[in-house]
């Protein structure tokens, strides 16, 4: 029982990271139908910028804001200078554009910051732990879970409770109609890119103190977050959160009880099974295609 609880705690912490990544993926996909393969690398870049700002003795909150802003800026620049001019590109062409961006960003991070493993200074300690009964919870795990949930709530309020959120939903549903009604679709797209990139950056900042900072730290979390988004349903924000937590917990429990060698395989097997039952994901909208 303690063991299971311990696995669950671990699963919740990784799950909230997956959920943050998945939210970014879903935000972009449902507004512009772009599968952003550079999501992980944008996040890594933001984290490295935060790291440098911290090295310049900036207060923690400012440094993190700077990092997230850098990630958001990359997202917006990519949208305006690459994605907009290449309007003609097919959906698959857009995927390839984001792959190109991923290569450029990952290369830039390697050239600027090197490839060695760095320690990301964080106000919470990973080795200081709280004990609840027999279950050990580190400060960072706790911080990750709480921050994740706060960010998700904020996003929910933004999308569901504000005018901007309404505009975002309108553009996502039908960009032409929204534009005809006077919603500045281009600005909304740019905002979506900024928001998605910043969410990724937040995941990076939460991950770096736990697994150290290196140019490839987001590779695995990005794939898992992407998978979680698909499992939850690509057009559903609550689905992304649900998918993220489910995936994190399933992975942790499977690794603990059965095999950590096939952890990732299992994660994808579960996702494929879910999709076979619900091809549009857990909370995805079932839409009926017409010919």
């Amino acid at each position: 029982m303690t063991q299971l609880a311990q696995y669950l705690v671990g699963g919740l912490a990784t799950g909230s990271l997956y959920a943050l990544v998945a939210l970014g993926v879903v935000l972009l996909y449902r507004s512009s139908r772009v599968l952003n393969f550079a999501h992980g690398d944008i996040a890594t870049l933001g984290t490295f910028v935060a790291f440098t700002l911290l090295g310049r003795k900036l207060p923690f909150s400012l440094a993190i804001t700077g990092g997230l802003a850098a990630a958001a800026l990359v997202g917006v620049l990519f949208f305006f200078f690459v994605l907009r001019p290449a309007k003609e590109a097919s959906l698959l062409g857009k995927i390839v554009l984001t792959l190109g961006l991923a290569l450029v960003l990952s290369g830039a991070v390697q050239v600027v910051w090197g490839t060695d493993t760095l320690v990301f200074p964080f106000p919470l300690s990973d080795t200081r732990v709280h004990r609840i009964g027999q279950v050990v919870v580190s400060e960072t795990s706790l911080g990750t879970i709480v921050t994740g949930i706060v960010l998700m709530t904020l996003l929910y309020v933004l999308v569901q409770g504000t005018k901007i959120g309404l505009a975002m939903r309108a553009v996502a549903q039908n960009a032409d109609a929204a534009q005809a009604l006077g919603i500045p679709a281009r600005k909304i797209y740019a905002l979506t890119w900024a928001l998605a990139a910043a969410l990724g950056g937040a995941a990076g900042v939460l991950l770096a103190p736990v697994v150290y900072l290196d140019p490839f730290m987001m590779l695995d979390p990005f794939l898992k977050g992407f998978a979680a988004a698909v499992m939850g349903g690509m057009d559903s924000l609550p689905g992304a959160v649900l998918g993220g937590f489910l995936l994190g917990i399933a992975e942790s429990v499977f690794a603990g009880y059965i095999s950590f060698k096939f952890k990732t395989t299992m994660a994808f097997a579960v996702i494929i099974l879910v999709l076979l039952v619900r091809p549009e994901g857990l909370l995805g909208r079932v839409y009926h295609r017409r010919v």
């Binding site: 996909y29 599968l35 959906l91 794939l223 992407f226 998978a227 988004a229 698909v230 499992m231 690509m234 060698k261 096939f262 990732t264 395989t265 994660a267 994808f268 097997a269 996702i271 494929i272 999709l275 076979l276 091809p279 549009e280 994901g281």
Partner: peptide, 28 residues
Amino acid sequence: LPALRLTGPYLAIATLGFGIAVYQVLVN
């Protein structure tokens, strides 16, 4: 077979999972 029901990103993830599964089986 899953492609009969899945499209777009859903199929992308299913095939991506296949690639990773092959890799892990070969490794282990």
